[in-house]
Design a binder for these strands. Structure first.
Length: 643
RNA sequence: UGGGGAUUGGUGUAACGGUAGCACCGCUGACUCUGGAUCAGCUAGUCUAGGUUCGAAUCCUAGAUCCCCAGCCA
């Protein structure tokens, strides 16, 4: 019988939606809490562990947590690239768990390989994690466990390694990488190393020399002495340290040996007293190794520290979950880096990139990403998520919060033949119409926020909104047809003008003054005398402002890039970026801003088109918008089906 | 063919021996000054074969399929 908490049963009498069932990691945590597996936070363990870069001197959050069962998670990225949407799942999961159970969330750089890591990546990761809302700083968020660097633990890791050598559990091996590979064996045939029975004293001496920089890269390694015949290759005497003469972004030139991930990672979690070490499925095979390392260190140690070897170190529980894998997307950092280096994209923050900074520049919100991760859930099933779901997540959030505006992406001139002149100027009259800023907010009691939008004789409409020979069910403008101009008048198309080549250069129409602002004249029976099927957006030619608008489409045209073609670069979508010169509601010039501090541009819905945000390439007098995502377009679906 | 995982509608996810549910997608319809949003409804599933049981997605046995592992990457 499992003591996991069952899913709460929905209360049919309340109108509240049933809370979602606990996912398997939450069930483990709740079972652990019920069993008091990790014990409660106390004055000792609630303080930040050694190495914390962000200590809250008041300790207020730690004090508030005393007495509740410990839940301590962490996000441990390697600073060798920018974070992507897959990392977002891990961040949301780890931070969310700590928050939900009143615990702590550590941010830790797993910076054990100076050859691949850079300060730029460290900075970008900190920015992106914060932006997502996983505030790891205890000074600003009670869930914050602090900022840590694995490289701050190098001395302690070194001491543990010495201890293992003394215990005959590690040895210096002088096989070359090539030799080790050749001697790796097969599932049936054991590996070999001529150095595994080397006396501890000899290994100790060589290991000290490795540290002192006396040996060249690749000449020797420190290996754990476990089991050369294990069917689990991770246990076939894995390398713990390799020689790397390279500058490290944090430790500088202090070290010429660096710990391997497998050796370092479990110790990092142990030193930070992480309770639940959450990682992805491919590390399931490594768990026995992490357990072995901790057990090997703890051999001869005691819980209370009595005895010659001292106090046993903390042994976290590793839990593996399935990665977030969206379709039409590449997520491996190696491949993303190559796209940056090959200039396939403009950088790590290209709005087409699946990186957090790319999504941010594209116009995504942290709320949308968090909700997406909540919706897809957490399990051990390796699944693919439709990219449409990612797009749907932003759409959902932006629909509720984005102010509306009108913009015409591909302008077509519309002239109202019977529009009156202003007697004072002799020029066409300018009307000021009410425009609802966000009808969703209205519905949610957000107030009747309106603003004015100028209207006159000459307008621009979307080319797609006019057809000379419309198919059935085309509700927009066509010769002889009537259509509503959003928030303005009903107009009737009277004809078109064409250039010598036969292209439509202008559409002509008449308007009905009785239909201003949405009014529809009523007949004697009190019912509207006329119904218009379509409403189209527009901008006033004399008022509209120009802007560059970047229309993005998915970066790849294959659902799993590289799967069928063999090379993901062959599956790039050549139409992933289209730039248009659009005409916008003049209001946008006044309100749309880019915020360098947040690296975010203001977001809007361009009615009937989609969600757009200001790009950082904007300059005074030159607006640049990115299209985040289109609106759902059932007409596009309809017409595609017809053809 | 050694070891470690996984398998429930098109997709994602519940169920913890007792009515296979939820969300997304799709399809109807209502409503709508955004072909948006919203609302209502519909479609559709337990990998296979045996077994245990009054009763199996769940337990047992055998098989199938998919993923991960032989870096001095993480």
């Amino acid at each position: 019988m499992s003591n996991a908490t069952p899913a709460p049963s929905p209360d049919p009498s309340s109108g509240e939606p049933a809370p979602r069932a606990l996912h398997f990691i939450e069930q483990i945590v709740e079972a652990d809490n019920a069993a008091r597996k990790w014990g409660a936070w106390d004055a000792q363990n609630a303080r930040p562990t050694a190495g914390c870069r962000t200590v809250d001197p008041t300790g207020a959050a730690d004090a508030a947590r005393l007495g509740t069962q410990r839940v301590h998670t962490r996000f441990p990225p390697e600073p060798n690239g920018y974070l992507h949407i897959g990392h977002a799942k891990s961040i949301c999961l780890n931070f969310g768990l700590a928050q939900r159970y009143g615990g702590k969330f550590n941010m830790r750089f797993d910076d054990t390989n100076p050859a691949k890591e850079e300060q730029e990546y460290v900075d970008s990761i900190i920015r992106d994690v914060r932006w997502l809302g996983a505030d790891f700083d205890p000074r600003t968020n009670p869930t914050g466990g602090g900022l840590y660097y694995a490289s701050d633990y190098f001395d302690r890791m070194y001491d543990f390694a010495i201890e293992l050598i003394r215990k005959q559990k590690a040895y210096v091996c002088e096989l070359s990488a090539d030799e080790v590979s050749k001697r790796r064996g097969t599932p049936q045939i054991p590996a070999t190393s001529p150095f595994r029975d080397r006396p501890a004293e000899e290994s100790l001496k060589l290991f000290a020399e490795m540290k002192a920089g006396k040996h060249p890269n690749g000449s020797m390694t420190l290996r754990a002495r476990i089991d050369l015949a294990s069917p689990n290759f991770n246990l076939r005497d894995p390398v713990m340290y390799r020689i790397v003469h390279e500058h490290h972004h944090n430790t500088g030139d202090a070290w010429s040996i660096y710990p391997m991930y497998d050796w370092a990672h479990g110790i990092e979690d142990s030193l930070e007293e992480i309770t639940h070490s959450i990682c992805t499925l491919e590390f399931e095979n490594h768990r026995p190794l992490y357990d072995w390392f901790i057990d090997a260190i703890n051999e001869g140690r005691t819980a209370d520290g009595s005895g010659s070897r001292g106090k046993a170190i903390h042994h976290p529980q590793q839990i593996e979950f399935a990665k977030f894998r969206p379709t039409y997307t590449v997520l491996s950092k190696r491949n993303l880096l190559k796209m940056v280096q090959d200039n396939v994209v403009s950088g790590w923050d290209d709005p087409r990139m699946p990186t957090i900074s790319g999504l941010r520049r594209r116009g995504f919100t942290p709320e949308a990403i968090r909700q997406l991760m909540e919706d897809v859930g957490v399990s051990k099933v390796e699944s693919m998520i439709d990219l449409g779901r990612v797009e749907g997540a932003v759409r959902d959030h932006l629909n509720k919060v984005a102010p509306r505006a009108m913009a015409v992406l591909r302008p077509l001139k519309l002239v109202i033949e019977n529009w009156p002149d202003d007697p004072a100027t002799g020029k066409p009259k300018v009307d000021e119409l009410d425009f609802v800023i966000n009808p969703e907010l209205l519905e949610h009691g957000g107030g009747s926020a309106k603003r004015k939008v100028p209207f006159s004789k000459v307008l621009y409409i979307e080319r797609d909104d006019f057809m000379e020979n419309p198919p059935k069910k085309f509700f927009r403008l066509a010769p002889g047809n009537e259509v509503r101009l959003r928030w303005a008048y009903i107009v009737k198309c009277t004809g078109v003008e064409k250039d010598a080549a036969g292209n439509i250069t202008e559409v002509r129409c008449t308007y009905d003054p009785a239909t201003r602002g949405g009014d529809i004249p009523l007949g004697p029976d009190g019912k509207p005398i006329r119904k218009v099927q379509g409403t189209i957006h527009w901008v006033s030619a004399q008022h509209a402002i120009p802007a560059e608008v970047r229309l993005f489409d998915r970066l790849f045209k294959a659902e799993e890039p590289g799967k069928a073609s063999g090379n993901y670069m062959d599956d790039l979508n050549p139409q992933s970026l289209e730039v248009v010169q659009a005409l916008l509601d003049p209001h946008l010039a006044e309100v749309a801003r880019y915020h360098p501090d947040r690296r975010e541009g203001d977001r809007f819905q361009f009615e009937r088109l989609g969600y757009f945000c200001i790009d950082k390439d904007s300059a005074p007098g030159k607006l640049v918008f990115n299209r985040t995502v289109t609106l759902k377009d059932t007409w596009a679906k309809e017409s595609a089906r017809a053809s």
